[in-house]
Amino acid sequence: MASHDVPRVTQKRTEEQRLRDVEKIKAYRHLQDQTLSRAASGTYDLELFQLTTKLLHLNPEFYTVWNLRRRCLLSSLLSREADEQQQPGAGDRESDGSVLQSELAFTVPLLMRLPKCYWIWNFRQWVLSQAIARLPVPAARKIWETELGLTSKMLGKDHRNFHAWGYRRLVVASLESPELGGASLAEDEFAFTTAMIGRDLSNFSAWHSRSRLVPRILEERSADDAARAAFLAAELNYVREALNLGPEDQSLWYYHRLLVAQIANPPNQHVIAPRLSDQERATYLRREIEEIRDLLEDYAEVQWIYEALLECILALERLEGGTGRIQDESLGLQALLAKLRAMDPMRAGRWDAIEGHAALQNG
Rank of each mutant, 00 (worst) to 15 (best):
S3T: 06
S3L: 04
D5K: 03
V9K: 14
V9F: 01
Q11W: 09
Q17C: 01
D21M: 06
V22N: 02
I25H: 07
Y28G: 03
L31W: 08
Q32V: 04
E47D: 12
L48I: 14
T52M: 05
K54T: 11
L58T: 12
P60E: 07
F62T: 12
Y63D: 05
T64M: 09
R69V: 08
L73M: 04
P88I: 13
G89D: 12
G89Y: 09
D92H: 04
S102H: 13
L104I: 15
A105F: 06
L110W: 01
W119D: 10
L128N: 03
Q130R: 15
A139P: 05
A140S: 09
I143S: 06
L148K: 08
L150G: 01
T151H: 03
K153D: 05
M154L: 10
N161K: 05
F162S: 08
Y167F: 09
L170H: 08
S174H: 15
E176T: 13
P178V: 15
G181F: 10
G181K: 13
G182S: 11
S184W: 00
A186L: 10
D188H: 10
F190N: 05
T193K: 09
A195E: 09
R199C: 12
R199G: 14
L201V: 15
L201K: 13
S209H: 07
S209P: 00
V214F: 00
P215H: 03
R221D: 11
D225H: 13
E235I: 03
N237Q: 05
L243F: 00
N244P: 01
L245D: 09
L245E: 08
E248N: 11
Q250Y: 11
L252F: 00
L252P: 00
Y255H: 11
L258S: 04
N268M: 03
V271I: 15
I272A: 01
A273K: 06
R281I: 02
A282S: 13
L285I: 12
R286S: 08
L295W: 01
A300H: 08
E307T: 12
L309K: 04
E311M: 10
E320T: 11
G322I: 03
Q327M: 07
S330R: 13
G332P: 01
A338P: 09
L340T: 04
R341Y: 09
A342M: 07
M346Y: 11
G349S: 15
E355A: 15
A358F: 04
L360F: 13
